[in-house]
Nucleic acid binder design. Structure first.
Lengths: 227, 227
DNA sequence: AAATATTAAATTGTTGACAATCTTGGATCA
DNA sequence: TGATCCAAGATTGTCAACAATTTAATATTT
């Protein structure tokens, strides 16, 4: 567990937030394993702060869906079952659909950076660079939600995506059919540019559902995430 | 501001949670007005606790969508604009649709307490008892989400409903067309009993959207909420 | 030996004091 | 007069000590 505490150089940010960011990384990287209890005193010492900020950070992460708080027992890294993961896919599909719907309404024929991202993803897919594709894919979805312009929606989707990463502390990236995935992106993009909000919703939903089906089709071990 | 602190009789619950419950009531009843800053020291004194639990309670309420935290400036009761309220309606519609979908899948032809609730609401509608109807309506929606069996979904919807109540610190209850509202409930219920999940989703979504349209149709002052 | 009660250790919950930051009001200057 | 700067006050952020609770380890009983 790394403890190069750059905590000192905080700028207009509170210690609790910095600790929360650090903890988020520890959790998403698996250094704090799913199901594990987070010992306030130990973590506080490792980070060079007192228990207060660690407590507050834990609560912050609770609202981000990464941590579960139990009174007098402590904060636990959340553990996601297969059934829950499938449930999350469904919720994310519905919310992503709404994001596409709103994006189409607000775009006004101009899809902004999405076009560029799509092109770069196509290149990554052609040259079979899965890591690069994964990275751009994250940006694409982020950008999509930004276009929708609803902070609530963003928070909800981010939280769900976070939770997905807790499934069996495994990194979800994988090597699916990038070309197919990006064709779906193209279709969503077109609907948004045309301003066809209902179509965008349907395609957005279907895109995430396709990801779910890829996951279900694969074994429980081989995880598939790039949509 | 009432301060009959029954905080003493806590049972297997933490002070922070009790304070959070109390604060939630203060906010939803308008005693803590939307936009207002929550002074930790003052509230702590009024409730007879130290600042710690008040702080933690504020963070809890942040994740429930009632409070906004700004570093070094404090916790503010959230303020919802008309545009945001409309946005929330849409999100709630989509999530309620998903709840109905899941409920239909899991019901197995048995709608449980929903039938009973529907009957009681019909009576309330016939005798024009709006308050009674409002109360039962809340239970109906709650029960619906419970049937869906997803704690995530529940949290999200609860959060949205909470936020709606922050719009102009006005109680949202009103005297809409209870009979029409309950006809919509009946249709949802039937779809659930028949196990027609996609139909249940559509009807659930439409039900909330109808509430949104009633709100939009009414003046900005007259609020309409019973769906 | 297994189950239950008891005690000690570890851990979380709460508090009050102090540090860091923001806000307010007044003084200074153009 | 109006704007800017500065200091005092108010408020939040952090800490370390103490209280309440849970967990474990041990003793006791059957």
């Amino acid at each position: 567990m790394s403890d190069i505490d750059l905590l000192a150089l905080r700028q207009s940010s509170t210690l609790s937030e910095l600790v929360a960011d650090k903890m988020e990384k520890l959790i998403l990287s698996g250094k704090l394993a799913a199901g594990e209890r987070i010992n306030e005193a130990v973590l506080a010492k490792e980070l060079g702060v007192s228990r207060g900020p660690v407590r507050e950070a834990s609560m912050l992460l609770t609202s981000r869906g990464l941590v579960e708080f139990i009174a007098f027992r402590g904060a636990f890294v959340r553990k996601i079952s297969r059934a829950e993961l499938l449930e999350i896919y469904d919720l994310r599909a519905v919310l992503t659909g709404q994001a596409c719907y709103l994006a189409a309404l607000k775009a006004g024929g101009n899809a902004g950076p999405l076009n560029d991202l799509h092109d770069r993803m196509e290149k990554a897919a052609d040259s079979n660079k899965a890591d690069r594709y994964y990275e751009l894919n994250l940006k694409f979805h982020e950008c999509l939600v930004d276009m929708a312009g609803s902070s609530r929606l963003r928070t909800m989707i981010d939280s769900l995506v976070n939770e997905m990463h807790l499934y069996r502390q495994v990194s979800l990236r994988s090597h699916p059919d990038m070309a197919q995935s990006n064709r779906e992106h193209r279709a969503i993009l077109d609907a948004i540019i045309q301003g066809d909000a209902e179509k965008a919703r349907k395609l957005g939903e279907a895109h995430v559902r396709a990801g779910k089906q890829r996951f279900e089709a694969a074994g429980a071990e081989t995880l598939v995430e790039d949509e």
